[in-house]
Nucleic acid binder design. Sequence first.
DNA 1: AAGCGGATGATATAATATAGCCCATAACCA
DNA 2: TGGTTATGGGCTATATTATATCATCCGCTT
Lengths: 168, 168
Amino acid sequence: MKTLVEPTLNLPEPNAHNHQQCVHDALKTAEHLCSERGVQLTSIRHQVLELIWESHKAVKAYELLDRIKPLQNAAKPATIYRALDFLIAQGLVHRVESLNAFVGCRCSGHQHEQLLLICKQCEEVEERTAGKVMQALAEEFRQAGFTAHSKAVEVHGLCRRCAGLGEA
Amino acid sequence: MKTLVEPTLNLPEPNAHNHQQCVHDALKTAEHLCSERGVQLTSIRHQVLELIWESHKAVKAYELLDRIKPLQNAAKPATIYRALDFLIAQGLVHRVESLNAFVGCRCSGHQHEQLLLICKQCEEVEERTAGKVMQALAEEFRQAGFTAHSKAVEVHGLCRRCAGLGEA
DNA sequence: AAGCGGATGATATAATATAGCCCATAACCA
DNA sequence: TGGTTATGGGCTATATTATATCATCCGCTT
């Protein structure tokens, strides 16, 4: 299986962190989880996950398709959507509803419902556990007599860095 | 301008309320707001709004298109999307991101960010102000240094009635 | 070898949304 | 009066996102 990494070359890497490490951890975690669960993190699925983790931006399905073609010549939309379905089912990827796009999940395997902070400027998505928010939601559900199955809390705005640059 | 109402005939109207009154109020409110704001609630926009309010379910753009054709023979996708853009900008309609669908807004003209409770069974959307949730969100934003521009809090699950029926 | 299930290949098409150009109307102003 | 602009909307085309369906392959079990 070919690999994709090509250490992000000289892309301006926005948030100060060791992204290679970050990707590496995410992939290792995914491998362990799938192995534990007895599900197959196949070559295609692994490649899609790797592509998603190339940045912390939400990425579109057809963008993934274009980018996987050099590696999987036969790739078609269904190829990507099937891989995404799997990755989402395993909690390895979030679907960002408001963008029709996908982002790597940092809390893979945990059950936390997440808050996604989506920066309009740099397009990066920050994931937060936001316990208080989820508690307050739970109380709303109780009052409304609503049985929640899935929560999508997506907020668009400016991240700290981009807001800071705007002011400067 | 033709009208659409045809008093919901014998559709099983789920939630116990006077829906005709409900629609009437929504339309009147919309008319007043647009007039106050000096924007045009044109015939097409009014018809689209009326169609959206036919139920409390989220409705798809192309469903609206099909349903408006008897009245607006020339209607094309852009006809609907333009009307929707307007109605959303005026806060008269919510876009439900997780469904790519649209629902009438009950708090038109107010600035409240809303919580949308979307029932998987009856497909109705309940809108709640959820002050505590929004407060908790605000606190998260502060911690994250995030400047929020739009919040979409959409939850899928079962409404009180449908959950009740399930148990029964 | 036969049969099974999961993953993928291959083709087609459905569903959702926007771009771009033109024209009609109304409001405003020189 | 005539020019100019802004807004709404018709029309054609096309972009983008997503799924359905059937065939094939591969590893595993019997």
